[in-house]
Write a protein that binds this DNA or RNA. Sequence first.
DNA 1: CCCATATCGTTTGTGTACACACGATGACAT
DNA 2: ATGTCATCGTGTGTACACAAACGATATGGG
Lengths: 157, 157
Amino acid sequence: MRSNVAKKQLESKTTTGTASRPYRIEEQVGYLLRRAHQRASAIFQVGIGDPNITPTQYSSMVKLNEYTELSQNLLGRLVGMDKATMQGVVRRLKERGLVDSRPDPGDARRTLLSLTTEGNRLVTKLLLNGPAVSRETLKPLSQQEQRQLLDLLSRIV
Amino acid sequence: MRSNVAKKQLESKTTTGTASRPYRIEEQVGYLLRRAHQRASAIFQVGIGDPNITPTQYSSMVKLNEYTELSQNLLGRLVGMDKATMQGVVRRLKERGLVDSRPDPGDARRTLLSLTTEGNRLVTKLLLNGPAVSRETLKPLSQQEQRQLLDLLSRIV
DNA sequence: CCCATATCGTTTGTGTACACACGATGACAT
DNA sequence: ATGTCATCGTGTGTACACAAACGATATGGG
């Protein structure tokens, strides 16, 4: 009973005169994004080829593979990670000998990051599995729908 | 140079004869889902009306508001949370006096959860802001695109 | 040159998120 | 009734994710 009060109040119109649908948590973007992200992470974990590499570690390594050397902060911006989060990701990659760092000779505030030989070898291997992971995640959709989803997602990011 | 080797190898065909595009991390579903989820969470945090309530806490409370009483495990399934994750979410909600628990009289393994009066009052208030949060998150898209995105997301979950 | 301001990386604290192991309980077949 | 197997909640360990505060360094204006 109590809950119906809340639901009623939510049935206000949006912009059009169309009656808005009841508020269901399962139909909200945020909720769906969380669930979809969970599933994508699970597929990544089993499909990328190394159970100890996480999605964020992977994207960091891919970016370092592209740019050779990057400051920690710039890398964070490129892969969409908070600097505090980046700190942990980099620390773990360094502990595993996949990433190296040196002070930026031109700016004492910065740390320059690069892949080690082993890091380079590992990304090269994982990159072979990358497309399959994406394909598996998108499998429920047709080719056209896959493109649509990628387009829509990139526009709300 | 080294990285070009990896990229070359990834340019294998998918199913059709179409030349596949180069592998860019920014175009992969998993990456886009992570970024989109980040943005949705940020919008939620400022828009839901209580900075101390997180998206998972919110969806748990909404479900408890719908069902009145649920076992912790079932609630977890309904909102897509691991039981270990659920444990933490419920503990925090209980600490704040928003949720109550009692042993299931018919099954000693289960804990039954419900909203307290205060929890009920809070969800009712937050539910008023829910639609605006979703609207804000989807703002970059047209009405039709919004529906499409929700449809595509629910199909890959 | 100096000062206000900004950037960079670190640290701390809180909160998801999941794997794994554990103990208690329930369900079911023999 | 008993033993096997599943379910439920808990605890531990690891890893994102971000806010806030901090010290060190850089930059640009006066």
